[in-house]
């Protein structure tokens, strides 16, 4: 048990782990609940968990910058749902996701905990998070393609220049 914990902390402290965790949290925040559930359908059940906080709906005040790059100002609020759980293996998972889907927040928190597992986490990441992230990239690429098709090259008429 203690070796497992040591390994866990070494992993926890690495920047690589932090980046991966930020990526899976962002992916879970953006993916539809149905898409996450579909990815999980072929997986063994996630460890049981108890709720430590939430799921509860609240607000985040979104800030912008003056002129896009200057000092911050408060733009307006958005709804967000958060949840924190501890699973049967003792891992704690957090989720903050846009919108008011409590079930999705709880699922994302359970996954955040399971993905931290030193043994099973990486596999789960490859099988569940990677396809979700890929689908989100594809969705972005569709937008980029639609935008690209509306790109224009305005040309100024010679008579207007003179």
């Amino acid at each position: 048990m203690s070796r497992r914990l040591d390994e866990f902390w070494v992993t926890m402290l690495t920047q690589d782990f932090l980046n991966r965790r930020r990526t899976w949290m962002a992916t879970l925040a953006r993916a539809d609940r149905s898409a996450i559930e579909a990815q999980l359908s072929a997986e063994p059940a996630l460890p049981d968990h108890t709720r430590l906080r939430g799921p509860e709906a609240g607000l985040v005040m979104v800030r912008g910058r003056m002129g896009g790059s200057g000092a911050p100002f408060n733009l307006g609020e958005m709804t967000v749902t958060r949840c924190t759980i501890r699973n049967a293996r003792g891992q704690i998972g957090h989720a903050y996701i846009a919108g008011r889907d409590g079930q999705k927040a709880e699922l994302a928190a359970a996954l955040d905990a399971a993905l931290q597992d030193p043994e099973d986490g990486a596999g789960l990441e490859a099988r569940v998070i990677a396809p979700l992230a890929e689908a989100l990239v594809q969705a972005d690429n569709t937008i980029r393609a639609e935008a690209e098709a509306t790109r224009v090259d305005f040309f100024t008429l010679a008579t207007m220049r003179s």
């Binding site: 430590l52 906080r53 509860e56 924190t84 501890r86 704690i92």
Partner: peptide, 11 residues
């Protein structure tokens, strides 16, 4: 320490 719970039914 997240072990100690808060309100069970917060609202």
């Amino acid at each position: 320490t997240l072990e100690k719970p808060g309100f069970i039914d917060p609202v």
